[in-house]
Amino acid sequence: MAGKVVLHYFNGRGKMESIRWLLTVAEVEFDEVFLTTREQYLKLLSDGDLMFQQVPLVEMDGMKLVQTKAILNYIAEKHNLHGKDLKDKLMVNTYSEGLMDLMEMIMILPFAADVKTKLDNIQNKAKDRYLPVFEKALSGPIYLVGGRLSCADVQLLECTLMLEEKMTRIPAVSRFLQPGSKRKPQPDDVYVKTIMEVFDIKSPFL
């Protein structure tokens, strides 16, 4: 019987975060071993655990998995989050890799010398190259591919939240998100009731 999944990475998001998200959505419990010293990394190398001398490393199903895309594909395939047929899998992978391209640009921001220029570049590419693709894909269906949840949907949520966090660096946006601003809370029963009364709606839309 395979033991609990174990993730080997730094105590931060990086390339492991998409794996954490996907395992969480698949309701798979996992433990984490955080790399804090070079000695830990060298031991993984000497033990032959890092095929390409890189992390993430995921211990799962009696295997030691490396390479982020391969790990994500394995988890998605195992937990039915990878599309129902070959054509759907292709589209899931296409969306997924586009999202990873965008998220990797965001990941390197903390290491950039000129953060503002890099952030402006990311925002422009997100607006002009990446987000329109997903807006078009989601113009009708609730999910990106095949009318069912896939790893691409999970990564889209992760990426959207990353972009949202970067946008909150804008002072005006940050102030709007603070308690006491004119930002409204999520819709509650009073809100729904008021709209139904104002427009004389007799029953819910769905």
Rank of each mutant, 00 (worst) to 15 (best):
K166D: 07
R13A: 10
Y9T: 05
V145W: 03
G146H: 05
P110K: 02
K127I: 03
V33P: 03
G147W: 04
K127N: 13
K84L: 12
K89V: 07
A113T: 00
M167I: 04
T117H: 12
D114K: 11
L119E: 15
Q178I: 03
L99H: 03
K125M: 12
L7A: 11
F30K: 00
L119S: 15
M51E: 09
D49V: 06
N73D: 13
M91N: 05
V55F: 12
F52I: 00
S46P: 03
T194I: 11
S174H: 09
D88F: 04
V6Y: 09
M16K: 02
F52E: 06
G14C: 12
A112I: 02
Y191S: 07
M196H: 11
L163G: 01
P185C: 07
L149W: 01
I122F: 03
L81N: 02
V25S: 00
F199G: 04
Y143W: 07
I108Y: 08
R175E: 15
M107S: 07
P132N: 03
E17W: 10
L109E: 11
E197V: 04
M16C: 14
A172C: 06
H82C: 15
I71A: 12
K43V: 06
Q123Y: 09
D188T: 07
C151Q: 14
E27V: 00
Q178F: 04
N121S: 08
L45Y: 03
K89N: 02
M105W: 12
E135S: 11
Q155P: 03
V66P: 00
D85W: 02
V198T: 13
D120R: 00
L144Y: 05
S181H: 06
F205K: 10
K193N: 14
L149C: 12
N93I: 06
V154F: 05
E27L: 06
L42F: 10
S96C: 09
F176G: 06
M167Y: 09
K182A: 07
S150Y: 04
S174T: 02
E32P: 01
A172D: 10
H79K: 06
I75L: 15
R183P: 10
K125D: 04
A76M: 05
K78H: 07
K89D: 11
L23K: 05
K136R: 14
Y41N: 02
A172W: 02
K182M: 12
M63L: 15
T168H: 15
L102M: 15
R169I: 01
L109S: 01
R175Y: 06
R13Y: 11
M91S: 08
Y130A: 07
N80F: 10
F205T: 01
L109H: 07
K116T: 01
S181G: 05
M196C: 13
A137T: 03
L90F: 09
L42V: 06
E27N: 14
K127A: 14
D49E: 13
D114N: 14
P187K: 13
D88N: 09
G12T: 03
L144P: 01
H8E: 01
F10K: 01
